[in-house]
Amino acid sequence: MPTVTAPPIDIGIPEAQRARIAEGLGRVLADSTVLYAKTHGFHWNVTGPMFNTLHLMFMEQYTELWNALDVIAERIRALGHVAPFGGSTYSGLSSIPETHGVPAALAMVRELVEGHEAVARTIRSVISLADEANDQPTADLLTQRLQIHEKTAWMLRSLLEE
């Protein structure tokens, strides 16, 4: 049986630009994965008077993040690159620090605000690459993600106000 070779990718974005965008999306994926894991861990371990509220809120947030991971990774693949994976890879790519120990409930909220803001900053750094390449699908994906992270940070931040 003859070997079939896939044709080169020709979507109107040169390889060098696709590579830069995919690298940036890899950082968004890493930030999102680390934030997902942190949010899920906080969901499991939150205690105190706000337990029920935070437990349910964190579940909504980690579910939304989980669903986003596939969309981000698939965009990287559509650009012709391998989506990064693995804990040490994500640790090296992510701008979100790992949590040590189990923080108090409001400290968890504060860490999640910081995490969502970190993802927003990473996204902003990649949107410009997508815009320069006329890559509307990536720009659209990132714009949607940015709205979600900024809204979630605002909602979490409101819990910290007196």
Rank of each mutant, 00 (worst) to 15 (best):
A120I: 09
L93M: 14
R77E: 06
L106H: 13
A107E: 13
N67F: 13
F85W: 06
T89I: 14
P97Y: 15
Y90C: 03
L69E: 11
S88N: 07
W66S: 08
E111P: 04
L69M: 12
W66K: 04
A118T: 09
V102L: 08
W66M: 04
A78Q: 09
P84I: 08
V109M: 04
E117F: 06
L93W: 06
L93P: 00
S94E: 13
N67M: 15
Y90S: 04
G86H: 12
P84R: 01
L106I: 05
S88D: 07
T63A: 14
H81I: 02
L106Y: 13
P103K: 03
N67Q: 14
H100E: 15
A118F: 05
D70R: 02
N67Y: 10
H116M: 07
S91C: 10
E114Q: 15
T99D: 12
G80A: 03
G101Y: 04
A120R: 01
P97H: 15
I96F: 07
G115H: 00
W66F: 06
N67D: 15
L65F: 08
G87T: 12
G87H: 09
V71F: 03
E114F: 03
L65T: 01
T63L: 14
E98N: 05
H100M: 11
V71E: 13
E64N: 11
V119Q: 01
Y90G: 05
G92S: 09
E64A: 15
P84H: 01
L93S: 06
I76P: 00
R75T: 06
E111S: 15
L106G: 01
I72Y: 00
I72P: 02
S95G: 11
N67H: 09
L112Q: 03
A78P: 04
V82W: 07
H81P: 04
A68V: 00
R75F: 07
H81M: 09
V119D: 01
S88K: 14
V119K: 02
T99W: 04
A73H: 02
G115I: 03
V119M: 04
V102K: 06
T99Q: 12
W66V: 00
L93I: 02
E98K: 14
A83F: 03
R110A: 07
G115S: 06
